[in-house]
Computed example of a mutant assay.
Amino acid sequence: MKKILLLLANGFEAVEASVFTDVLGWNKWEGDGSTEVVTVGLRDKLTCTWNFTVVPEKTVDDIQLDDFDALAIPGGFEEAGFYEDAFNESFLNVIRHFHAGQKPIASICVASLALGKSGILIDRKATTYDHPTSKRKEQLKHFCTNIQNERIVLDDNIITSSNPGTAFDVAFLLLEMLTSKENAHHVKDLMGFT
């Protein structure tokens, strides 16, 4: 069984988290059965961007990072306090741990800024929220010199993406990395995406 740590910052976008629980959950029951998602936060209770309250299964202090095979991080809104958790050293240390082990790391939208802040995007290709009204790509330039104008960027074991609309594609790409292209296609078909 491959365990995926779904790392949630306060102020995360629920839709960006739910794609991982759904795609990897469908795989657990309808795909090859090899994935299990564990929701983890820095706190016992989190508030999503739009005031949806979530209770993660574990806090970072309750887990052994070596027990996990991959990391998934949804983005969120600054106005909802996302960066307070996402830029916290405990949060960043989780990212560094997975990077040191060369394990898959999947991020959606502005979650790539946490990857950048952790230091793992140096000499890597990456992207982040790319709407013309946003300054997030300028912010990412402080952490990454090779910013791509792509919806999704895969650089070795790291996935970054440009907006919430990429969420399902990121989750399916992570599933493919953890299982196989054929299995990811099978789950995608079962979920009505083909």
Score class of each variant (00 low, 15 high):
residue 62 D to V: 06
residue 32 D to H: 04
residue 57 E to G: 10
residue 10 N to W: 01
residue 73 I to N: 07
residue 53 T to P: 10
residue 77 F to K: 08
residue 39 T to F: 00
residue 68 F to K: 13
residue 69 D to Q: 14
residue 84 E to W: 00
residue 25 G to I: 11
residue 94 V to D: 04
residue 36 E to Q: 05
residue 39 T to P: 10
residue 69 D to F: 05
residue 71 L to I: 11
residue 18 S to V: 06
residue 23 V to R: 05
residue 34 S to E: 10
residue 57 E to F: 01
residue 93 N to W: 09
residue 13 E to D: 15
residue 94 V to A: 01
residue 41 G to Q: 09
residue 53 T to S: 13
residue 21 T to I: 14
residue 51 N to R: 06
residue 26 W to N: 10
residue 39 T to Q: 11
residue 24 L to S: 05
residue 63 I to G: 08
residue 38 V to R: 05
residue 77 F to A: 14
residue 60 V to N: 02
residue 81 G to V: 02
residue 47 T to H: 05
residue 68 F to C: 12
residue 47 T to D: 00
residue 21 T to D: 11
residue 81 G to N: 00
residue 71 L to P: 09
residue 42 L to H: 02
residue 80 A to R: 00
residue 59 T to A: 12
residue 16 E to T: 03
residue 60 V to D: 02
residue 20 F to R: 00
residue 34 S to M: 12
residue 68 F to T: 11
residue 78 E to R: 02
residue 28 K to T: 09
residue 86 A to S: 02
residue 69 D to M: 12
residue 90 S to P: 08
residue 58 K to T: 07
residue 86 A to E: 08
residue 49 T to Q: 01
residue 71 L to N: 11
residue 93 N to C: 06
residue 28 K to S: 06
residue 12 F to I: 02
residue 32 D to T: 08
residue 44 D to N: 04
residue 28 K to W: 12
residue 23 V to N: 06
residue 26 W to D: 09
residue 30 E to I: 14
residue 44 D to R: 12
residue 32 D to Q: 04
residue 61 D to C: 12
residue 80 A to T: 00
residue 90 S to L: 04
residue 23 V to L: 13
residue 61 D to K: 15
residue 72 A to H: 13
residue 50 W to C: 01
residue 58 K to P: 00
residue 51 N to E: 15
residue 72 A to N: 01
residue 37 V to H: 13
residue 32 D to L: 02
residue 12 F to C: 11
residue 72 A to M: 01
residue 68 F to P: 06
residue 19 V to G: 00
residue 12 F to E: 08
residue 28 K to N: 15
residue 19 V to I: 06
residue 55 V to A: 12
residue 84 E to Y: 08
residue 21 T to Y: 10
residue 49 T to D: 07
residue 42 L to I: 10
residue 43 R to Q: 15
residue 24 L to R: 13
residue 83 Y to Q: 01
residue 53 T to M: 10
residue 86 A to Q: 05
residue 27 N to F: 04
residue 60 V to G: 02
residue 79 E to Y: 01
